[in-house]
Design a protein around this nucleic acid. Structure first.
Lengths: 220, 220, 220, 220
DNA sequence: TATGAATGAGCTTTCATTCAT
DNA sequence: AATGAATGAAAGCTCATTCAT
């Protein structure tokens, strides 16, 4: 009844099962604490088979990171694909996609955001790449907003770029933290749209104000 | 003539040396990867002495977390102690203190923000407590702002509280991400004040807009 | 065209291919280090097929040893088959055959001389048998010489036998070492005849002297 | 009551005990087959201590090789130290020392002669170095003989050198094989002096004949 | 106060070997 | 005849931890 012992399964399928088990284990216990025994067991498979297919613990972890990063990136990019929308709608779509994905794959998100960067730079790179891609996407969006509002007139392109880039980083950081935050509460968890709304509400008002020149400075 | 062999050092001092070495090791290699051998060596001390003073690796890590969390909390609280200031000045002071501290103690910040939460709940608790304290501080601040602006009139206290709490979380999340971001660039690292200004600029404009009722909703 | 996938090959041929690959692997990496995976791969065949034909790693190694031992023995025996020759010519022929064969099958020679004896007695036996056969051959030769020279007159048969047997062992030992030595130098390797001449020169002069009663004793 | 459990022993002593156990294990089972567990057990010690002192299996094996090679070299060199002796007496002394040492340390000799060369070049080097040293010693001895007998007159130095070097190699090879041979027979083992006499007898008569121009050539 | 000596337990990795097709 | 899928068993190595001094 179901996946019973000894079942011969084609390699591609088994590999995905292993990656599923590995992502869960790494997400819940961390890279070092998760043991290959546990992962193999959870995948319903013997350890040597994991090694035969994924080569080593390092490679297994890398494969997890890559798969999860690609999936998340794809989700966000798909969400923002429609370039005919207004920038705010596009951002809204992207955020919804992001929060929906992180909610649907909490272990994957944990691996990407909490585990990988803490381990050696070998792993951090892939995550950094993914993050850069998303930051670039947001930066482009904000750039369009700034242009639409006419914010960039009368300023150096350089200054605008740097400020917009800073905003993008802050925004992505907020989103990441909110994803953790949302995933943390098992009960009464906010839906992806609610979380997206919170952030959208927060940042969009801010951006409108900012683009119109509302700027804060310390009293001295 | 320098830290030479056999130097008899009072316990309190030795403990701090050990914690220093441990924070550095844990920050750079992670909880599991950092070995007691390395830590003892870096502290210029034999392993049994570490066990005599700090009992176990878990206790050592806990001590690190507690020390660093207390130090960070104290820095932020000190920065926002002057209640006579306007809320924005108070927030500004707190952010400056926060970014200055995370910049001055990068390993400690890494332990708190990247390593501890990934390990077992045993450790996450302390960090969560610290975070809650800071979120509460920010929430109080935002509450004052809302009140000053008259934002809360005509709304349920509940609704306001929830919204303000969400904003506080987003703000703290941004700050944490920006701290990582600032620490990541070894060269051309922005000063604490620059980082604080970026965030202040971003969020303050946003908050002003929001409090005045500027609210974003999806077109459908 | 060539050894392509799925090629159906008769069992006898496949077995030889496997033994070839195995001898090469065992000779180069040793019995334990050479893996069945490597051997199967080098033979252009899947692992289960190796097991189907050769049963186990032990059996495979045994088969290698037996094949190589038989081949070497045959070469030497063929070289010395002509009993009508003078003993020295016969020995010369045998040495030439020996060095030619070890030079032509370096991996086989390594398996026989360096790998097999180091592993369990199970394998050493076959090699020992081969060696005994060759030692006996040399002993017979030296016996003929002694007789021709009249060396054995006036001595106990026992004494002569023991001395001649010792000489035979020394001679075989020299030959084995010289085979290693010749195989070791990839460039400027001496030809089989040169190597044989070196040894022949050395031992024949010695034997002639010895047989005539020239005998060394420590001064005290 | 002897070396009982838990006995604290200074490092230098323990290291020698470990090396003793390792040489025995490697000599009897080979490098790959001997397990660290066995070695540690035989040394009356836990595995981690072996790793703490000797770092790795490779390093342990290297240390064994080096220790045994140094000991054997020293024995032979000590045996031939007295340069005032006639060359044949010197050689006789060296051979006696050699056979006595290989008989007294059969496992060490096995490691040097049968196990090390079969494993990776990493190990073969040390043994090759030792062998080269001994070959050089013998070469020098033979050179003195050739000079005393006036053999080198009328020949190119080159030719003499090459021939003498060949003889040295053959002689060392014989000695090695005879050492194996002597060690192989547990009962009725020949004494070191007997083995040395066999070889001395054999080679010295040969050398005298050879130096006087007795040379063998194939009839065609 | 401080440490060299020592270990139990566990982890990653590899290998010879078999089953089902 | 031939192979992709799968595993039991064991090996090398590391680590947190303690004992005896």
């Amino acid at each position: 009844m179901g996946t019973r012992k000894g079942k011969r399964v084609p390699r591609a399928v088994r590999e995905q099962q292993m990656l599923d088990a590995a992502v869960a284990a790494f997400g819940r216990h961390g890279y070092r604490s998760a043991s290959m025994d546990d992962i193999a067991g959870a995948a319903g498979v013997s350890k040597p088979l994991v090694y035969q297919y994924l080569r080593s613990k390092e490679d297994l972890f890398s494969s997890c990171i890559e798969r999860e990063a690609a999936a998340l990136t794809k989700a966000v990019l798909d969400g923002t694909r429609d370039l005919s929308l207004a920038p705010d709608q596009q951002l809204w779509n992207g955020l919804c996609a992001f929060f929906a994905h992180t909610a649907a794959h909490p272990d994957g998100w944990t691996v990407l955001h909490q585990q990988a960067p803490g381990e050696s730079a070998k792993f951090a790179g892939v995550v950094a790449g993914m993050r850069a891609e998303i930051v670039a996407l947001v930066t482009a969006l904000l750039g369009r907003v700034a242009h639409d509002v006419g914010y960039d007139e009368g300023y150096d392109d350089d200054v605008v770029d740097r400020e917009v880039s800073g905003l993008a980083h802050a925004l992505v950081g907020s989103a990441e933290s909110l994803a953790d935050w949302a995933n943390a509460r098992a009960d009464e968890r906010p839906s992806a749209k609610e979380t997206a709304a919170t952030l959208m509400n927060f940042c969009w008002a801010g951006l409108e104000g900012l683009m119109k020149g509302a700027r804060w400075t310390p009293s001295r």
